[in-house]
Design a protein around this nucleic acid. Sequence first.
DNA 1: TCATGTATTCCATTATTTGGAACTTAATTT
DNA 2: AAATTAAGTTCCAAATAATGGAATACATGA
Lengths: 263, 263
Amino acid sequence: MGARKGPMEGRETGTLGKLMALLDLVTHADGPMRFTDILAVAGQPRGTLHRQLVHLSEEGLLEVDDDGRYLPGLRLLDLASRSWARNEFRLVAEPHLTALQKLTGETVHLGVLRGTSIIYLDKVEGQQSVRMYSQIGNASPIYCTGVGKAALSILPQARLEALLAELEFQRFTPSTHTAETLVAEMDDIRHEGCAFDREEHEVGIRCVAAPIWSDNLSFIGGVSVTGPAYRLTMERLEEWSTPVRQSAQDIMRDMRIGLGPRR
Amino acid sequence: MGARKGPMEGRETGTLGKLMALLDLVTHADGPMRFTDILAVAGQPRGTLHRQLVHLSEEGLLEVDDDGRYLPGLRLLDLASRSWARNEFRLVAEPHLTALQKLTGETVHLGVLRGTSIIYLDKVEGQQSVRMYSQIGNASPIYCTGVGKAALSILPQARLEALLAELEFQRFTPSTHTAETLVAEMDDIRHEGCAFDREEHEVGIRCVAAPIWSDNLSFIGGVSVTGPAYRLTMERLEEWSTPVRQSAQDIMRDMRIGLGPRR
DNA sequence: TCATGTATTCCATTATTTGGAACTTAATTT
DNA sequence: AAATTAAGTTCCAAATAATGGAATACATGA
């Protein structure tokens, strides 16, 4: 296949890139990893890997438990809490998310397109079930979430195709899209101004989402209302598409004010 | 003062250390920074700084807005959400935090000692005021928070002194401790098994906290109940010191089970 | 004790980072 | 519009840090 050396050939971040790849590896694992476990999958020589792990640990990006196993470090929490607290999109959207939650009584999400994933930036639940923070920061597939499909719908054709080419479609439920059915639905979404998730990511969960974007498309996201299928019938979902679209509009309006005249 | 080259001389993390220092600088700033702003404070030559910023941005640790200003990147959120979701201390403690919140009706915090700060790992509020995630991940001073003082109280003398030597005492309220008054209170805390925050960090906020530690002191943290002074009279706080201490005990018991027999 | 799996250190070689200066681009003034 | 100043980017020889194979230390259990 192709003569290129590998995927992501453009990325040249030197030492940092290698260290971040390793950090990702350990962070995305199911549990703590011993040195040998990492050695088996990291494809680095012993000496190199050892020094890299020591450096990451000394910086607090990884931690070593009493058994010498490596796991994600708490320094990441501190860094992320600042990233989150200062995110302008989230700050502007917050009151609208709360209002939408009160109106519908269901869970409201705010997400943003990053690469080929949706990253959730905020979540407002009704009967606060104590599970705060969860979900926030999670990277979810773009092709089977409401926010993801809404985001796709406003991409210009070229960028859409480029993105689709990078996707791998995994089947989560019987309704999960394939490349073909996803493309087929795009026109509907563009026409309606909102996207429905009909149990495409998780059985028993439905959602309606509307896109949010900046004038120059330098960023694209969305807002959604999510809930169990027994409460969120398709009729109810249609009904709520109006307030969801309205929320998206309101957030966009406030962002323009917030940013002021460009320069 | 002393002949050492600088603080943290032991840390030798090469390229990573320099990049993380830069990441911290931008992340801890009040707002987005332009290249020149960073240049003025980073103490790095133009060429070097530029490449570092490009590398951090390509990895998603920083982002560049439409005006070319740098701010914390969302990659941090993804990394942190995994660090948080998998944190064993937090997972074990969670049901106990919820129980304690229900019993007292006030806000419950879980924190862990990291260096000279307390990092908050979880928070359970009553009338969930929608402000989820906030506070979690925040690094707070050790000498004027309940959890911080509780953690200090179980440190062995040598480690306590080493830590105190590194602290700079900032006066947040009229009741904030100085080095002397803090040391003086230690015996009380050790005797009582819990620490009170008598509006030492924020006027109008009181709290009672109990320490949590592992057998070998490889980790130290605490649990606390926090609330407004008008509700949390000192009598009420004394009353709740019992369930708080009990929660700490329960969490420690469950952690030992969770970790299993050491090896 | 010895055997075995695991983690750490060493150091000559190799690759990356460094930083001053030259260059490009954008914004501001005359 | 041209000139001036400021802001950001690129270049490349020298300095520095990362690499990786092999030797060494450490832990565990027969």
